[in-house]
Design a protein around this nucleic acid. Structure first.
Lengths: 216, 216
DNA sequence: TTAACGTCGTGATTTTTGTAACAACGTTAA
DNA sequence: TTAACGTTGTTACAAAAATCACGACGTTAA
């Protein structure tokens, strides 16, 4: 595992998906698994699975396949930080709360430790044991809690401003749910999750399916 | 525009992003735009932009660039259906409501027309003018409203079951927010939007940024 | 009239990503 | 002991996507 440098982005995404399913397998007390089973569970192909594990330097046995526990750890060593990474969530509307519900307690090494909102009625409240601060305190809290990752779940109109403030405070990675392109320094990693675009895309491809069926 | 057949998926995604920004430009009364401006606004490169437009058979002028209105229409003709596509939203928790807020009224050709939930206290309620039905009525309503696209915003534990019911009722495209791989017939188009994976990915790449900075 | 400029459209090339093919290796069963 | 089996790791190949490089074409200004 000397070089993380040139691991394809798609491999990273799949590793995270593999781990999600491996954690389920662990729950079910499964201790070993073959590449074709992982493939089945994740929608990848067996070759892809083996190739991806190769990339992070984890090797299975041609007889017993992969050890579930070890594999979870290997993926973890690769994609997780050594210590837990704190995450900030900006925007505590419906979306923010949904994210909080989904994320909190799901991953050992990732923890939302600060909430922010502009709404004075939300500021000061505590959700899942996490305090909500006004956006003015972003620099202070982000620095103090050593947060590098933020989730932007605010309306379009505030997103750019909020994002700039986050980056200014030291954030280097953002999950952006606002339906705009954030204009930020190129070294900041931004993952866009526009919900409208997602539906549009599916609407497009769903028609393809219907067309095909009509032709039969 | 004879052949939609072999347009790359990435191009489709970008076309939708271009349109999003073009609609903003239209709001600002801009009538013409150059590829490098679109690139700037969307995070693509100018060549990518031009190539993508080439793919859908829209051509600009080397002097004035692209006509905003025409371009919006051309993209629309390509990615939208002729008539409005109805969409079902399953799960009216925080996430469902967030999606409803974001999506509703944003796109001419896409409209959420049915909500579903298992919670009896939610069933029968009306949000954004849309009625919420019990999941038992999925087949009936989906058929009646001719819905082909659905958004799954239910907890992990119900997602597979709900998805199967949707497909059984005739759904051919799903946006899945549940953190599991849905096991469905291959002809159904599924776009996964696991919120935990999104944060994990950003957490990974955000560290890269920090590492780089430390080396300077 | 001509040269310089900025942009578009596109063939050629490179980079990234996925797939096929197969040797190597325990295990099992004859 | 040997052959057949199923799986892994990896090399070679193919497909998809991005990028480079450049000709064409109005426009502008000398």
């Amino acid at each position: 595992m000397k070089t993380k440098a040139n691991i394809p982005e798609k491999t990273i995404e799949r590793l995270l998906i593999y781990r999600r399913e491996l954690l389920n397998l662990k729950q079910e007390m499964k201790t070993a698994v073959f590449s074709h089973q992982i493939a089945q569970l994740t929608g990848a192909t067996p070759v892809q699975v083996r190739r991806d594990f190769m990339q992070i330097g984890y090797f299975g046995s041609s007889v017993h396949g992969y050890n579930v526990d070890e594999l979870i750890n290997s993926i973890g060593e690769f994609v997780d930080d050594v210590q837990t990474q704190n995450v900030a969530l900006v925007g505590v509307g419906h979306l923010g709360r949904a994210i909080l519900d989904y994320l909190q307690g799901r991953r050992e090494k990732l923890k939302i430790t600060a909430l922010f909102d502009v709404d004075p009625t939300k500021v000061g409240s505590v959700l899942h044991g996490i305090r909500c601060y006004p956006t003015e305190q972003i620099p202070e809290i982000i620095t103090h809690e050593n947060i590098k990752v933020a989730i932007v779940a605010v309306p379009e109109s505030n997103a750019q401003e909020v994002a700039e403030r986050l980056v200014w405070a030291g954030i280097t990675g953002i999950v952006n749910y606002a339906p705009i392109k954030l204009n930020l320094p190129p070294e900041v990693y931004v993952e866009n999750r526009d919900m409208v675009l997602a539906v549009e895309k599916v609407a497009f491809y769903s028609r393809r399916v219907n067309k095909k069926e009509e032709l039969l």
